[in-house]
């Protein structure tokens, strides 16, 4: 009953929301029935509804092996690194970019830092190979001029969390900084005016005005990223690392593991099971963090 009263009271608001709601129902909730496949043995000739229920059988290949824990750990660890470095870099870049006074230069830089977003992972892996290959990679050649022995990067798993973080940072910092720049643009000029009158340096203004006032946006971006923390970046990791055995100890994530196990089997049920695992875990993480964020900043909560 409360719902109908609310609709009558805020008719215009619900009207604004209506197209979005229709979209959600049709394109997001209706197809969700497909997730049932995780608990069924999907037979094409029987369709989704006719296929038999098999309980948790589809999860056995993932949880029954010894690898699900290391792979989950890698996923969480790498994603945490990506979030911290990526968001951190975006914050730094947007803050500093905001300080640039010359409008023309600022526009050029804004366009340039956006470019890495367009580079496909295939091309990125070529570039990384050009830099890191043992025989005549750029890095090894630099090391040689400094008198250091060449490192076999593609056989040394310990370096790769850092390498992947740098690559991810490079590719996404520009994209994320655009969102933060828009938030910065929304800050009223009066704050700065009064700060200058009080004798604050630009650095202090940045630290004490700009940064706190974009806190809401930062927290929202953080929350949204946390929800995907169980989803590994398949495109990047498989594109750059591939099936390179020595590196898998630190770079194998849930998605690459699932891909390797299932790629010859054409089995939708088992891949649905893995996705369900990732979604549910991500949901738990977000619900927990959403509650935490709620205490810090009322506006930043997702729900």
């Amino acid at each position: 009953m409360g719902l109908f009263r609310d609709i009558r009271k805020n008719a215009w608001l619900y009207l604004l929301a209506l197209p979005g709601i229709i979209f959600l129902v049709v394109f997001s909730y209706l197809p969700m029935t497909g997730h049932m496949l995780a608990f069924k043995d999907y037979r094409i000739n029987k369709g989704i509804w006719g296929s038999p229920w098999v309980g948790f059988k589809n999860f056995r290949f993932f949880f029954g092996g010894v690898n699900w824990l290391p792979v989950t750990r890698n996923t969480l660890f790498l994603n945490a690194l990506f979030i911290i470095a990526g968001l951190g870099a975006a914050i730094v870049v947007s803050l500093l970019l905001n300080e640039i006074r010359r409008a023309a230069y600022k526009k050029v830089v804004q366009s340039v830092i956006f470019l890495p977003y367009f580079v496909s992972w295939m091309v990125v892996s070529f570039i990384v190979y050009a830099m890191l290959n043992t025989k005549d990679g750029t890095i090894n050649r630099m090391l040689a001029t400094l008198g250091h022995a060449p490192i076999s990067w593609y056989s040394s798993p310990q370096y790769w969390p850092a390498i992947l973080t740098i690559i991810n940072l490079w590719k996404s910092a520009g994209y994320n900084s655009v969102i933060l720049l828009a938030a910065i643009a929304g800050i009223s000029g009066e704050y700065y005016e009064s700060a200058v009158i009080d004798g604050a340096t630009r650095f202090q203004q940045m630290r004490l005005i700009t940064l706190p006032l974009i806190r809401t946006t930062i927290l929202v971006l953080l929350l949204l990223a946390l929800g995907r923390i169980f989803y590994g970046d398949f495109g990047m990791i498989y594109g750059v690392v591939g099936d390179n055995t020595p590196l898998l100890a630190t770079t194998d994530v849930i998605d690459t593991y699932s891909y390797r196990a299932l790629r010859n089997l054409a089995n939708f049920s088992m891949s649905s099971a893995v996705v369900l695992y990732q979604s549910v875990m991500g949901l738990i993480v977000v619900v927990v963090f959403n509650a935490i964020v709620h205490r810090v900043d009322e506006n930043a909560r997702l729900f």
């Binding site: 059988k57 056995r60 290949f61 029954g64 092996g65 690898n67 099936d243 055995t245 898998l248 194998d252 593991y257 390797r260 196990a261 299932l262 790629r263 010859n264 089997l265 089995n267 088992m270």
Partner: peptide, 16 residues
């Protein structure tokens, strides 16, 4: 299918 999935993963991971 379950055993095959486990086998495929391990095989692809190491044997190449």
């Amino acid at each position: 299918a379950t055993e095959l999935a486990i086998f495929n993963d391990v095989e692809a991971k190491y044997m190449s």
